[in-house]
Nucleic acid binder design. Sequence first.
DNA 1: GTTGACCTTGCCATGGTGGGAAGGTGCAGA
DNA 2: TCTGCACCTTCCCACCATGGCAAGGTCAAC
Lengths: 148, 148
Amino acid sequence: MRIGEAAAASGVSAKMIRHYEAIGLVPAAGRRGNEYRDYGDADIHRLRFIRRARDLGFGMDRIRALLRLWSDRDRSNADVKQIALDHVAELEERISAMREMADTLHELAAACDGTGRPDCPILGGLAGTLPASPRAAAKVDARPSRPV
Amino acid sequence: MRIGEAAAASGVSAKMIRHYEAIGLVPAAGRRGNEYRDYGDADIHRLRFIRRARDLGFGMDRIRALLRLWSDRDRSNADVKQIALDHVAELEERISAMREMADTLHELAAACDGTGRPDCPILGGLAGTLPASPRAAAKVDARPSRPV
DNA sequence: GTTGACCTTGCCATGGTGGGAAGGTGCAGA
DNA sequence: TCTGCACCTTCCCACCATGGCAAGGTCAAC
């Protein structure tokens, strides 16, 4: 399979397949005499694994660890579970930080009548009288880094 | 005030103050004869505004818009509210995507006994038998981009 | 005049991903 | 055989917000 078919079959873009190869997340693909990369079923399988892990929000370091365990017959499922639980804990932390932000904003927005006058509790809150909440924000970014 | 004091007073690092100046989010600070930037109370106020908006997860574009409205006497609070609500909607979307990820992982982890054997439902799930959930993940990044 | 705290500019890195340029390859049809 | 097209290759740039580091300037206190 050439990279385009591999991309379609795995759900990982050709661009990212090359990138994963460059950072050593997947082994360098063989070339078919010409310069083209060549992929087999095992490669697709691995790429799909990565895709699913990405979909679950795992970062590259953890995916790397998971891949290592995946291809280790003598692995301990306790190790796998630990990685998953660590990641879940981080997810929960980010979720609650964002929950706090959203709640604060809901309150501010509710206090704003939106009638078109200059008077605005939201700006008021941002300008200084914010009810002293989200310190968690310093630890977590709530903006997306994977463009939609 | 020099930049260090301004940073301490506003909660925005000196580095970021310079960056905000570079991207035009704050006006270029005056210099005091020497090369040092000089800040007054209004500057601190503005920086604190930015800091609070960042803490609520606003991205730079929205902060820029909020700042414009903030310093516009003839603003409409409907405009402000719209920006806030747009942002809240994005937050909620990301929260629910991450909620889905966390839930899926909770399930997988619960199915894994973690007794140390190679047998592992988590890897099984990643390897292909994942219960067909998080398509939302394609739209939202759950990893932090602001380092902790 | 030396020390130390602070400032300056400028470059690099992060993490995943996409965009695009400039050029090579392979296959189908005229 | 030539042409066109779809695909591939490598390489560089951009995002967003932030931190780190380096090499050098400035100022106040001792």
